[in-house]
Design a binder for these strands. Structure first.
Length: 909
RNA sequence: GGGAGGUUAGCUCAGCGGUAGAGCACCUGCCUUACACGCAGGGUGUCGUGGGUUCGAGCCCCUCACCUCCCACCA
């Protein structure tokens, strides 16, 4: 005997009461642990499915530095949604979790921590410092898992990886050595982006251009060996680099300066002679048309210098201070101070011709915020040009699909213009470069120190002190996490992965590099499809930032609304190519949706007695409401599947929301109520109620895992669907047999319209729902549109009467002329429907009627004009013409009704 | 300087060539035997501008304007 479950369930749902319980249960049961065909049995025995069809998503590994932000919450929600959906479809679905060592970010945080003890990493030394970072990592790594658990993530934690763990480190060394042996990785001295804030080189991608108002100075350079007063004027924003000038450049076709090419100029203050060179890159219109060339302190000048075989002079060092080469009086000065001193000297000697404010773009170190200093240094570079070509080809031939596809052009442009990737960093935390040097500087690149020693023939070797750019190890993530370079069962089964979900902001940093490395090392794109999400913003669409104080914390939101509401909200806002404006009101609305689901279940459980979710149902024996809701269920299942295939999470959520709230709760449950009354039972109503609820919960499960599991476990008969958990129950599919015929669909439409008529009339008269209505039906006058439905017969049937009584407070339905004076007549499907209430007829709101008449006549005018156009009749499809004709007829009947109510003649013309 | 996206109700956004939609907000009436995190009803639109294609354009084409964001070595 079932007790009455309604007593057991609270009137309000409380996500906190079950969310953590279910996450713990799922983990304990190992539902998300994948067993791979051919793999040795182990903990994976508890696996969900033995399916041989793989589905795999690699998490974009969050930094171990800390805390998940809204972007992680969004992306994790979508990844989990897809994984749960595929898992329920029976795929062997792996969502592999992990974290990134995040070289610079992590090192900075630990250094900041050290600074509290007034220590620097140099005080500790490399060994001790790294021990400290590892300790720090151990402390924070669990945080990521805890947060993903809170969100309901169905990761396989037995496969969790870390970019610095042994396996991944091995993969990194393997990749590095292979690329080196192929000649793609080289070491050399180049002008690189130097961050004095981080004391390391950074890649082009880590440089952020920002507009800055500087000054543009014009400086005169005397001509050597010319007339004593002959000078040429040069414009510059960085006068201090003049000390490192090794040439002046002019455009080869600039008549103003052509005569100078081959001559020498004298660098003011420094007094050195430097040549004039002619170079196409000089813009004649800009500045004075003469450019100072400082190869070691300017990217463009570096290239110019190379073209002309010019030497370079390093006048600024890696700390941002002037070197000895800048001259004794400048040596050791900060750049700013050196600039002031130099300007003073120039001014004093009459070399400073002009100065003005100047707005231009300047490169800043994205991470530390300092101005990037171009600096000559020895670094490791990876030539990715051929890999980029492969990545381009994969995109063009469809092996790699970007969603939304509009990112394609950006992809092409970046890869077509790619430059060598500076992969070495002067940091300690990261993968130390697998290169060793002997006493005389010979380099041995190898997979291990032993291998390097074997190459060298001795062990007097020192390892390169630099580490690799964090993104180098991330680039290997899709296959290094599966055991590459070993040929593991996981790699064979799950690689290439199915989809990647990440933010567009790391399209180049990460996605492009994974595709390049994946294609290079495995011959396959690491994933077939990439869904790029937008940026999570605040309710007003403003970017979240600490300084603006508008940052939302996923953990707070989960605490307040429950994980399911957070997930549903994020997923429903993920429209292609758009950012995600996160409004707490919307979140509250979706929490209310959870409450609605809770209460619908609570209602059903209180009514179904001994009934169970039926294993099958005889659709043909059902009454219209049951047939209708099953039809809607089938359509919704079909729609959700299609939407998820296309990454249209917004559409899938909208359809689910509408189906559950409007179709199921507002309409079906209301229609089911009379059929659930003792002694009045409609055939199989309880079974259909349970069946629909079961399917709806399963459809919703990927988006709202906790609530659906909690409720589904309460449904009688759920064990027959899956003995343990909704997580592994089959995802509902379309059932074509359940879909309604056109006739039935029309009947349902007529019924709903009739309900609305009654409710409208009641609201117009300001009556409460308690005042019952009497309905009068009679055939409408001539000119009524044809209809397949016999409206009068249908609406006056016992079945319809009972439904109308329950849902719309209709006391009686009479096939008769309405009492004299009745004004609220409505025409539907050839029937004139009049609604009367048990109260004196209130005064008709004439203004409202007049407005309605005006609108009606406007519409008639429009439709008639279309119908009278010969072109419309000739060219529009017949169905459209016919639709317009019917429309006109209905509008005309409506007009007659309105005119009668207003006491006007029936026909105006 | 290139490129992408956006411009639809008060707000945030859907929208498939055929009479403009949702949620939230707002107004009215309701504690109707699941739910007030609720029920029912309601109002609101020059679909950014100007052209074009079409019988018919929010939707397709072109122009312009404004907003967001990427990429880019005019010193």
């Amino acid at each position: 005997m079932r007790t009455t479950p309604i007593i057991e369930m609270d009137k309000r749902f409380d996500p906190k009461s079950y969310e953590s319980r279910w996450q713990a249960e799922w983990a304990a049961q190992g539902y998300f642990v994948c067993a791979v065909p051919g793999a040795p049995p182990g903990s994976a025995e508890a696996t969900a499915t033995g399916s041989s069809e793989a589905y795999c998503i690699m998490i974009p590994p969050p930094n171990i530095t800390g805390k998940l932000h809204m972007g992680h919450a969004l992306q994790s929600t979508l990844q989990d949604l897809l994984t749960r959906w595929r898992r329920m479809q029976g795929r062997n679905s792996l969502w592999l979790p992990g974290t990134d060592h995040a070289g610079i970010a992590t090192q900075l945080m630990v250094e900041r921590d050290l600074a509290k003890e007034s220590k620097s990493r140099h005080d500790l030394g490399r060994e001790k410092f790294l021990q400290r970072v590892w300790a720090w990592k151990e402390q924070y790594q669990g945080n990521i898992r805890r947060q993903l658990d809170l969100l309901g993530a169905s990761c396989d934690w037995t496969r969790e990886r870390f970019t610095l763990d042994d396996g991944l480190s091995r993969a990194v060394r393997e990749a590095f050595v292979r690329l080196y042996e192929e000649g793609r990785i080289t070491r050399g001295e180049y002008l690189v982006n130097w961050s004095t804030g981080l004391d390391t080189a950074i890649s082009d991608l880590e440089v952020e251009m920002r507009p800055v108002t500087d000054k543009m100075w014009q400086i005169a350079y005397p001509i050597a060996g010319g007339a004593s007063d002959e000078r040429v004027v040069v414009a510059t924003t960085r006068p201090e680099t003049l000390l490192g000038d090794t040439a002046l450049a002019v455009h080869p076709e600039d008549e103003r300066y052509r005569h100078l090419v081959g001559k020498q100029a004298i660098v003011p203050v420094a007094g050195r002679s430097i040549p004039f060179v002619a170079d196409d890159s000089v813009e004649r219109e800009f500045g004075t048309g003469v450019v100072k060339v400082t190869p070691y302190h300017d990217m463009a000048d570096f290239e110019t210098g190379r073209r002309h075989g010019l030497p370079g002079i390093q006048v600024i060092d890696r700390k941002g201070r002037m070197t000895a080469a800048a001259g004794a009086e400048f040596e050791g000065m900060e750049v700013e101070a050196a600039r002031e001193l130099l300007l003073a000297k120039l001014r004093q000697d009459g070399f400073l011709v002009h100065e003005e404010a100047y707005l231009h773009n300047v490169g800043f170190c994205q991470r530390s915020g300092v101005r990037v200093q171009p600096l000559m240094s020895t670094q490791w570079f990876c030539d990715v040009s051929s890999m980029a070509a492969e990545a381009l080809a994969a995109h063009r031939d469809g092996r790699l699909e970007l969603v939304p596809a509009s990112w394609g052009k950006t992809w092409e442009h970046w890869l077509e213009n790619i430059r060598p990737w500076c992969i070495s960093r002067q940091l300690w935390w990261g993968h130390q470069i697998p290169a060793w040097y002997d006493e005389v500087g010979n380099v041995f690149v190898a997979r291990s120190r032993e291998a390097a020693a074997a190459q060298a023939g001795h062990d007097r070797l020192t390892q390169d002190s630099d580490v690799l750019d964090t993104w180098f190890s991330s680039a290997l993530w899709p296959f290094s996490t599966l055991g590459w370079p070993e040929k593991t069962a996981d790699l064979a089964f799950f690689y290439p992965t199915s989809v990647l979900i990440t933010g567009f902001d790391i399209l180049f940093f990460w996605v492009a590099r994974m595709v390049m490395m994946g294609l290079h090392f495995t011959g396959e794109s690491p994933f077939a499809r990439v869904h790029l999400t937008g940026l999570v913003r605040d309710a007003e669409g403003v970017k979240m930032s600490k300084t603006k104080g508008n940052v939302l914390d996923p953990e707070d939101l989960i605490e307040e609304h429950g994980a399911d509401a957070v997930r549903f909200t994020l997923a429903s806002l993920d429209a292609p190519g758009r950012d995600i404006p996160l409004d707490p009101n919307v979140m509250a609305g979706n929490r209310a949706f959870g409450n609605k689901i809770w209460n619908a279940t609570r209602f059903a459980l209180s009514k179904v007695d001994e009934a169970k979710i039926p294993e099958s149902i005889d659709f043909d024996r059902l009454a219209l409401p049951e047939r209708w809701i099953l039809a809607r269920l089938s359509e919704t299942a079909a729609g959700v599947d299609a939407s998820l295939e296309d990454f249209r999470f917004d559409v899938a959520c909208r359809d689910l929301y509408y189906f559950f709230w409007s179709d199921f709760c507002d309409w079906y449950i209301e229609m089911a109520k009379p059929g659930l009354e003792p002694g009045n039972e409609r055939l199989l109503v309880k079974e259909v109620l349970l069946l629909t609820l079961d399917r709806a919960l399963r459809l919703l499960h990927p988006a709202m895992p906790f609530l659906t599991e909690e409720l589904w476990q309460k449904l009688p008969g759920h064990e027959a669907i899956h003995p343990q958990t909704i997580c592994l129950a089959a995802y509902p599919q379309r059932v074509p047999k359940w879909e309604l015929s056109a006739l039935e669909a029309e009947k349902m439409k007529l019924f709903r319209e009739t309900v609305t008529i009654v409710r409208n009339d009641r609201a117009d008269k300001k009556l409460t729902h308690r005042v019952k209505a009497d309905l009068y039906l009679q055939s409408a006058k001539a000119g009524v549109p044809e209809s397949a439905v016999d409206a009068i017969a249908f609406l006056s049937s016992e079945e319809a009467k009972r439904l109308l009584s329950s849902i719309a407070g209709v006391r009686s339905v009479m096939v008769a002329a309405p009492p004299l004076g009745a004004t609220n007549k409505h025409i539907r499907k050839g029937a004139e429907i009049t609604c009367r209430f048990d109260i004196p007829e209130t005064a008709v709101d004439l203004d409202k009627l007049r407005l309605a008449l005006t609108a009606n006549e406007e519409n008639i005018g429009k439709v008639r004009a279309r119908l009278e156009s010969t072109e419309f009749a000739a060219k529009a499809p017949a169905a459209v013409v016919e639709g317009a004709r019917r429309n006109l007829e209905t509008l005309q009947l409506e007009r007659a009704r309105l005119r009668a109510a207003l006491g006007l003649d029936a026909e105006p013309e």
